[in-house]
Design a protein around this nucleic acid. Structure first.
Lengths: 339, 339
DNA sequence: AATATTTACGCAAACCATTGCGTACCAAGT
DNA sequence: ACTTGGTACGCAATGGTTTGCGTAAATATT
């Protein structure tokens, strides 16, 4: 027993006029008498009339909805990013439909299909770590639907991107480690499929090169994003004959897990080994020692992604994908410097 | 230059038949010849036809979308809850529209209006801490739209609820403190406007009563959910002439901030003062000492909320609001027991 | 052979808001 | 008196799908 929605027809009937007149009166169309406009608006207000957005969608072939696909929600970085998207989109009169890929390609394909069937006006996506075939994403571009990559991207897909300056983030982190006297710097990288992981690795290599520190393959390990893998990767690097004196991690989870492993081994942080990680969690300040982090402007990424979408919506948009790169911020804390 | 969507009309034209025939053929209607069904289905598959959900929505006066309002996304508890909702709803063929109230009544009213204008089929909400007038929520019930409270609820609004057994969660936490020899147990409660905060307070009081421990008003302080307030509340209770030997906190943020304050004062945890908090973050295991927590089944709450919604959607539903109460789990860690 | 039933399909309305076009009326201009 | 122009409104189509009703032809029944 759904409550029947109030329509233009109801108002028209009440005022003994036509639906079109009511519609035009509400939009302040020039060909409607002030008298009629007043009557219509009065009644619409009194009855709290709102146009049925479904009908508008059908007509305009647009539903003022942006689809968003993230690998997971329950992750501080993505949830802040989502807040940025939600806030900005809402302000611009758009709705947001969030979906989760769980880092699985199949789920990503599924949710994108669902979103396409829903006739979303645009898609903002952080591809899963399994996403190595891009057909489903190219399909979106081919349909002419605005596509915006956030955080991670697919090289060959011609779409806009809002990225973090991962290269320089990693570069500065390593530079900081070097400035604190570290010489053997390990890097626990993320999956090679992730663009930002590759960028961070490059930044790491770039910094080593600048300071003439030889790259040693054994100091670089790739970690999938599980807890176990983080533990193993850390164990691996600190078990080397020549142990590293510092570790740059792909993200905070790896860093936290790594610090735990290191502590269990009885090593002191930062004296014997120091840590830097890409991270955002406010909770960092409660962990001892506090982790030195490369902060990613998560909220801002969400904002910029929506802004790019809005640009692409405007009529005079030329289909040239844009890339926005946002700067990171290095926050130095106890895991690299004695406090 | 939006790509034009493929419609029934296109298929009908191609096959020199009518739209209605195509529609019925696709739904395996009895009055369509097997021959025609085959042709239609073949073409639909080849062209990858999907019905326009907007048109279906308009017709059915239903859009297979559930609105969800949470105080914030970037909070572990809520983000897990959201994953539970998203997952369950998707499986049932529903979409989810997440909105954030930022704990502000005005924003809550705004987003609910937006959702209502969108003609959502149901609303799942955790009311903001400012929500003390319920007109906007009663309006939903009056319209006959299924409303489900999660985590927090409004007494006077006749709607279903999925709650956590906050009373017993707090009760057991206090019981645990008592069993570890604590006698002066403080409680840093949440805002009095939040139903779950009131329940936890009751559980705290109930446990004290059971063990004949007198209630002392000075041991109970209310905290809004800011960091500063958490610090102040903690300072307040540990500055009492007769200091408490343990603290039960409304949530993890208060506990973490509280432990920081206590450490700064040079007090040892759990020897001199112990902590229990309602919390879910996996990150807990990295904080020293690890916090003993009352775990709320966040994901499950999301699931149950969607299930209640689905029940209410079914035709034979009688409008009797249900309340589901999910159990908490006490996980004992280093903040209450020496490890 | 005449009527009843089944088969297989099309027409058109419904859902609701929007909009191009048409029309009826009135006043001003030639 | 006749055209032009403006005003104020209604009709009908549009968007895509579903569905009640109608109908023609083919088969079955009396």
């Amino acid at each position: 027993m759904q409550y029947r929605q109030l329509t233009l027809k109801d108002i028209a009937k009440e005022l003994n006029t036509s639906v079109s007149t009511v519609s035009r009166a509400l939009k302040d169309h020039h060909s409607i008498s002030p008298e009629m406009k007043r009557k219509v608006n009065d009644l619409a207000n009194r009855w709290d009339y709102h146009p049925n957005p479904v009908a508008v969608s059908l007509l305009k072939n647009k539903n003022y909805t942006i689809g968003v696909v993230v690998p997971e929600i329950a992750h501080n970085y993505f949830s802040i990013l989502m807040e940025g998207i939600e806030e900005t989109a809402t302000q611009a009169g758009y709705h947001v439909m969030f979906c989760v890929s769980k880092e699985k390609l199949q789920r990503e394909v599924d949710v994108i299909n669902t979103l396409l069937n829903m006739r979303i006006d645009g898609l903002i996506i952080a591809p899963s770590k399994e996403t190595v075939s891009y057909d489903h994403l190219e399909a979106i571009v081919n349909r002419g639907i605005p596509l915006i990559f956030i955080d991670r991207y697919c090289e060959s897909v011609p779409a806009s991107r809002v990225l973090v300056d991962d290269y320089n983030g990693a570069f500065q982190a390593v530079e900081h480690l070097i400035s604190t006297g570290r010489k053997r710097i390990a890097h626990i990288a993320g999956p090679e499929t992730l663009s930002n992981s590759r960028q961070r690795l490059s930044g790491y290599l770039g910094a080593l090169k600048k300071y003439n520190i030889p790259v040693e393959d054994e100091l670089i390990v790739h970690c999938d994003l599980t807890r176990t893998s983080a533990r193993e990767s850390t164990s691996q690097v600190i078990s080397l004959r020549k142990m590293p004196d510092s570790i740059l991690t792909y993200n905070s989870s790896i860093a936290f897990e790594g610090m735990l492993v290191v502590k269990e081994k009885g090593l002191r942080i930062p004296d014997q080994i120091s840590f830097v990680g890409f991270a955002n969690e406010p909770i960092i300040s409660y962990i001892e020692p506090q982790l030195t982090t490369v902060i990613q402007p998560a909220y801002q990424i969400g904002q910029e992604a929506v802004n790019l979408f809005l640009e692409q919506q405007s009529n005079d948009y030329e289909a040239i994908p844009k890339t926005k790169i946002l700067l990171t911020q290095l926050v130095i804390r106890g895991s690299t410097v004695k406090v």
